[in-house]
Design a protein around this nucleic acid. Structure first.
Length: 580
RNA sequence: GCCGAUAUAGUUCAGUGGUAGAACGCUACUUUCGUAAAGUAGAAACGUGGGUCCGAUUCCCACCUUCGGCUCCA
């Protein structure tokens, strides 16, 4: 057996142990299922009265006590009746038993010590393989039975488990480190964004530094877009609901839209996406095929009434800034346009030193009611995306059911500091909305021809992208991205005048400078520059004034010695334009 | 939305059924300093609304916020 299987068996065995302890402490609890997961295990219970995480240490203690009485797992095959009699008060187990019977599989019961559970197996050979110091109960959470929100909510107890205490410690240290670079924490510390209870949950407010960061990134995207012929357009943030009735969004997403009643009794909607607005710009006049593709881009906000429990820092918000673009083109132009978007995505993400995993997000043939258009149109679109991925020579995992409701996507996934995966960039092929809106061009034969549309976002949601990138850099942004690029620190009051001159010449060259002319001690000013993770700071004292130079200190490389203002300027501008 | 937790100064944290405490930050004064926190003084907080109580920041309820999950995510 390989190592992963061993660890899974260990973790799954601990789930049994957890259930044994819970049933000993709270005998009228109903246990349901308890699998092993990435770092440990969980078990879902229906408690007769709610428990809180304060009880976890008690449960853990009982687990350790019971573990001493266990030697190993024994199993026996039983009939449906025997199994149901055994779990006579437990409707969860009975449901599972019925499923096993339906699948014509064997019903097996596993027993360790005095605890017996319905289980298909996969345990440690001997209970001694479980080290009491290498597992730990961590938290409790609600979880719907079978993951369906229509079902009853059970109480899930999570635990960490590893082969040894050292591995457990290592993992816990990793989590601690990850928390230090949590974007919610860094956003406050580096003064990038804030939330206000009065404004509301999920509505981030951007400070001057945070706004600078956003603008720098957006300008970079815009530079790339210009190379490929995109034009900037601007759109209102609200619309009559009629627009979404026609696009198909209303039917599908009306619960998630922020609605506005006008005083004349009409319903307007905060836009949850930009495509229909861009579509209306395309639709302003008839087009010749010679004028296509038309490529429209806007960096603009969309609003979605997300459920309160889903909000999380910048990763999940109700007001999302999208660097959104749509290409309106003919079928035979799709592949080239998509390749161009892919190139932009590659250029952009390699500049921020970030690796993305592409994912082919496809429709789920079993749930066609979730989507616009028929099976045929989807298969055609998906075939085109597969060819694109093939031509790019990359491996993309296929994810059925992850498509947008109007078309399949190539999504690019990034991870946050806790390893959670988020969709960032996306390329989506849409053959449905052009049909709904009857978007056409006049072709060579003088006929009206339905066009197609490509949705292209480089950062996707700027908020989500920033959450990922803040954690990726742990707040220590490269020079070109840093809201403050250079801090100027005069040692004493007499050095301020010279420092001002240096500061002015850097500023007039477009360098983002912050001056520290406070009367604090020198050590403290240095400390503040380091805490703020500013890429460079300049020191100006007697020695520098005498030499008509400044001392340059780098966040990453330490003291770089004295340098003249001109040399410094050319060094900085070169570094910024290389995005190094 | 659901389950559980959480809410004290700008920030990070103490604490109490009867007068709320620290550190950093902030303000003033002193100090003008050579690589991660100079000194002194001062201002500054119990999320909101109900309830119990002689009295609530503390106990109870509701709401709001945030966090960990579940569900959802165009």
């Amino acid at each position: 057996m390989d190592k992963d299987t061993d660890l899974n068996n260990l973790r799954h065995s601990l789930a049994h142990l957890l259930a044994a302890a819970v049933l000993e402490l709270y005998p009228d609890t109903k246990n349901s299922i308890g699998p092993s997961i990435e770092n440990g295990f969980y078990y879902d219970f229906e408690f007769s009265s709610p428990i809180s995480d304060k009880e976890l240490p008690k449960i853990e203690k009982v687990m350790k006590k019971i573990l001493q009485t266990w030697s190993g797992f024994e199993h026996k095959e039983v009939s449906e009746k025997e199994a149901k009699d055994f779990f006579k008060d437990n409707e969860y187990k009975k449901e599972l038993i019925e499923e096993i019977v339906e699948k014509k599989e064997k019903i097996t019961l596993y027993t360790a010590g005095k605890f017996t559970d319905l289980c298909r197996g996969g345990h440690v050979e001997s209970a001694r393989d479980i080290k009491p110091e290498a597992f730990k109960l961590t938290h409790i959470a609600g979880a719907y039975w079978r993951g369906d929100e229509k079902n009853k909510m059970l109480t899930r107890i999570y635990g960490l488990a590893f082969n040894t205490k050292e591995e457990l410690n290592t993992y816990e240290i990793q989590i601690e480190e990850a928390k230090k670079r949590d974007h919610k924490k860094l956003g406050k510390e580096l003064d990038l964004f804030t939330f206000s209870e009065l404004v509301g949950a999920g509505l981030p407010l951007w400070t001057p530094k945070g706004t600078m960061l956003r603008d720098v990134l957006d300008n970079f995207v815009w530079e790339l877009r210009q190379k490929f012929g995109y034009e900037r357009v601007d759109i209102p943030h609200i619309t009559k609901k009629d627009l979404y009735e026609k696009s198909g969004h209303w039917q599908k997403f009306k619960d998630e839209l922020f609605k506005i009643e006008t005083r004349e009794g009409h319903t307007f909607v905060m836009k949850p996406m930009n495509c229909p607005h861009h579509v209306q710009i395309y639709d302003r006049k008839p087009w010749s095929y010679k004028e296509l593709p038309q490529r429209y881009a806007s960096t603009t906000k969309v609003y979605r009434d997300e459920q309160s429990g889903e909000l999380s820092g910048l990763s999940r918000v109700r007001c999302i800034t999208q660097d959104d673009a749509h290409v309106f083109c003919r079928h035979d132009q799709v592949k080239q346009e998509m390749k161009n978007i892919w190139t932009m995505i590659e250029t952009f993400y390699s500049a921020v030193g970030f690796t993305l995993t592409p994912r082919l997000s496809l429709h789920d043939p079993k749930q066609m009611d979730k989507y616009l258009g028929d099976e045929k149109i989807w298969q055609k679109a998906e075939q085109e995306l597969r060819e694109l991925v093939k031509e790019k020579g990359v491996n993309a995992i296929e994810a059925p059911g992850e498509a947008a409701f109007y078309g399949p996507k190539v999504d690019f996934m990034g991870n946050d500091s806790l390893g959670r995966e988020w969709q960032v960039a996306t390329i989506q092929l849409d053959m449905n909305m052009p049909v709904n809106f009857d978007l056409t061009c006049t072709n060579e034969k003088g006929e009206k021809e339905t066009i197609v549309m490509i949705h292209a976002a480089i950062m996707g949601s700027i908020e989500r992208f920033l959450s990922v990138i803040i954690e990726h850099f742990a707040g220590a942004f490269p020079l070109w991205l840093s809201p403050v690029q250079v801090k100027i620190i005069p040692i004493g009051e007499v050095h301020i005048e010279f420092a001002k001159k240096v500061s002015e010449s850097l500023k007039s060259a477009g360098i983002r400078v912050e001056e520290d002319f406070s009367d604090e001690g020198f050590g403290k000013k240095v400390r503040q520059a380091k805490v703020d993770k500013i890429p460079y700071f300049l020191i100006i004292g007697d020695k520098e004034i005498e030499a008509d130079k400044v001392t340059l200190e780098s966040r990453d490389k330490g003291n770089l010695g004295q340098i003249s203002t001109e040399d410094l300027l050319s060094k900085l501008t070169e570094e910024i334009s290389n995005k190094s």
